[in-house]
């Protein structure tokens, strides 16, 4: 085929070649296209399977869960939600609110701190800049969970464990976020504009807040989402820090409920319904913010 195409390209006139090739390719590659579409759809199916399961399973009551066919829906979704809401006076919804606080508020503050540091590193020349950046870069490689236990010990000494602060504070710093913010500030904020704002007498922080931050918008959304997912996903830190279940995020809470399920199978329906309700807001957030989510930033950051 290689040879034929080459010879054809030499012999056949341009426009003829184009139309001819389209039909030829169409015939030849159609089976391949069906194959690759099928592979892709299989992947999608695999990824949707547990989600489909949890949607259906949360409509079943405790006895149906273990007796009816996996993908046969039932009618108890509302009952399950009511039961979940009544569980210890709405503890579940408290977990949801806690998660929103840890991940939402935490990620916003973390993004702001990252933007401030990244902008300073990208747009100023000052002694010590490279040392600061290198030390921060090493922080990217240090696995966050490794420091969870010493963080616990240090916070225990100032009496902050088992409080909201113990989960919020350690996750405000994100070396990876600072790294991304630096790259993004360097690329998205033209130095000329900073310079002209300066000549007009704007103060440095004013320039940062009013000019640089809006320009860094898409990059900041990316950093926010990365950090949001990191906090939401971090199981070990709250698991270690918190003893009072009123402070739990959803992950630690549900994991505890599942533990009780081992001796009390009725708990399983609560866990399943809780799992379903907890992933809905996150999926919505992702679908909404998808347009602003710049993974190429993370991928581009990669080019060493």
């Amino acid at each position: 085929m290689t040879i034929t195409n080459q010879t054809r390209a030499m012999v056949v006139p341009e426009f003829h070649e184009a139309s001819d090739r389209r039909s030829r390719n169409g015939d030849q590659r159609m089976p391949l296209a069906i194959g690759s579409t099928a592979v892709l759809l299989l992947g999608a199916l695999y990824c949707l399977l547990p989600v489909a399961w949890v949607v259906i399973a949360s409509t079943k009551d405790a006895s149906e869960l273990f007796s009816t066919f996996t993908f046969a829906p039932s009618t108890h979704l509302w009952d399950n939600i009511v039961e979940l809401t009544n569980y210890r006076d709405g503890l579940y919804w408290r977990w949801m609110a806690n998660t929103a606080l840890y991940a939402g508020f935490g990620a916003i503050v973390s993004t702001y701190v990252s933007a401030l540091s990244g902008y300073a590193l990208a747009k100023y020349v000052f002694p010590g800049k490279n040392v600061v950046f290198r030390v921060l870069l090493m922080g990217v490689l240090v696995p966050g969970v490794i420091v969870a236990i010493p963080q616990y010990l240090l916070l225990a000494q100032v009496g902050l464990t088992n409080t909201y602060w113990s989960v919020l504070l350690p996750q405000l710093i994100s070396p990876y976020g600072i790294y991304l913010a630096r790259i993004y500030a360097a690329a998205a904020v033209p130095t000329d504009i900073i310079e002209s704002a300066r000549t007009e007498g704007a103060r440095e922080l004013y320039i940062f807040h009013r000019i640089a931050l809006p320009m860094m918008g898409p990059g900041l959304v990316t950093i926010f989402l990365f950090q949001f997912v990191a906090v939401w996903n971090n199981f070990m830190l709250p698991y270690i820090m918190l003893g009072n279940d009123e402070l739990f995020p959803i992950t630690v809470g549900l994991s505890g409920l599942l533990n009780q399920g081992a001796s009390l199978p009725a708990m399983y329906t609560l866990v399943i319904t809780g799992a379903l309700l907890s992933i809905i807001p996150l999926i919505v957030l992702f679908l909404v913010l998808q347009r602003y989510w710049r993974v190429d930033l993370a991928a581009g950051a990669v080019k060493a």
Binding site: V51, W232, N233, T251, L282, I283
Partner: peptide, 11 residues
Amino acid sequence: IFLPYAVPAVI
């Protein structure tokens, strides 16, 4: 295929 990224490891 990207959807599971939004689901925490515990869930």
